[in-house]
């Protein structure tokens, strides 16, 4: 058994979950009073805050699209988000810009932008604590915040990652597992219709392994959907009860 395997086993022991188990999810919609929609999500030790503003008047005339809304995504990483290094990252960090554009591309076909001609929808995401899986948590947080803002979309978008190490498929990698050179496949899908909106992998994976890894990630997405949907239902029911006049 090589060192990395031993390490991985140790890590999963530290984490206390099995290879096909998701990290613990906690989520809460509508945490900010000023934003039109907002959400806070924890997936294991990764924590993310999302704020959605809009649809509102376009701030820059150059960005105006005459037949649909313009979506604008910004991601920032809090300086205290990583325990190893404390440093301030600019918003123009190449890695963050790349994730932001992936999030934007994920949501563009899902949000019914044609209903909001000449408007703008802003999605601001902030990673408060980092432990792997930035893109997944960003997509999940943005979904919840968009639903809270009452913006029409085809359905939920849920994202999850899966990897493969020595014939074992692993679900929802944390930072240590990502660092251990595991090939990681990130999947964002529409859980009801099963359509894919994002598929991303940065390293090489044997083609025989692709299908089991993708199926595992898809299962993870569906599990995340269950959690988000329960939260949203409870929240809407609560608001409806409170706002009924008598």
């Amino acid at each position: 058994m090589c060192i990395i395997t031993v390490l991985l086993i140790l890590i999963s022991l530290m984490d206390g979950r099995r290879a096909n188990e998701l990290r613990k999810i906690k989520c809460k919609p509508s945490v900010l009073s000023q934003a039109d929609g907002s959400a806070y999500i924890e997936q294991g030790n990764t924590k993310c805050l999302a704020a959605v503003y809009g649809p509102r008047e376009t701030r820059q005339k150059a960005q105006l699209i005459h037949n649909k809304a313009n979506i604008n995504v910004e991601i920032s990483l809090a300086p205290f988000s990583m325990p190893q290094e404390r440093k301030k990252r600019s918003k123009s960090d190449r890695r963050l810009l790349e994730i932001a554009s992936a999030v934007k591309q994920t949501f563009e076909p899902i949000i019914m932008t044609n209903l909001f001609a000449r408007s703008q929808i802003d999605i601001y995401l902030q990673i408060l604590q980092f432990d792997g899986g930035t893109i997944q948590i960003c997509i999940n947080a943005a979904t919840l915040a968009l639903i809270d803002a009452g913006i029409p979309m085809q359905e939920y978008v849920c994202a999850c990652s899966a990897g493969c190490h020595e014939n074992h498929t692993l679900l929802d990698l944390n930072n240590a597992e990502e660092m251990a050179d595991t090939p990681e496949l990130t999947v964002a899908l529409l859980p009801m219709s099963g359509k894919l909106t994002l598929l991303q992998m940065d390293s090489r994976l044997h083609v025989d392994k692709l299908e089991p890894v993708m199926n595992l990630a898809a299962l993870g997405c569906k599990e995340i959907y269950q959690t988000l949907d329960e939260t949203v239902r409870e929240y809407v029911k609560d608001l409806f009860q409170k706002s009924s006049p008598y």
Binding site: P152, E155, P191, F240
Partner: peptide
């Protein structure tokens, strides 16, 4: 009627 629904339902 007056049922709570979520996107995609």
């Amino acid at each position: 009627e007056s049922k709570v629904v979520t996107p995609g339902q």
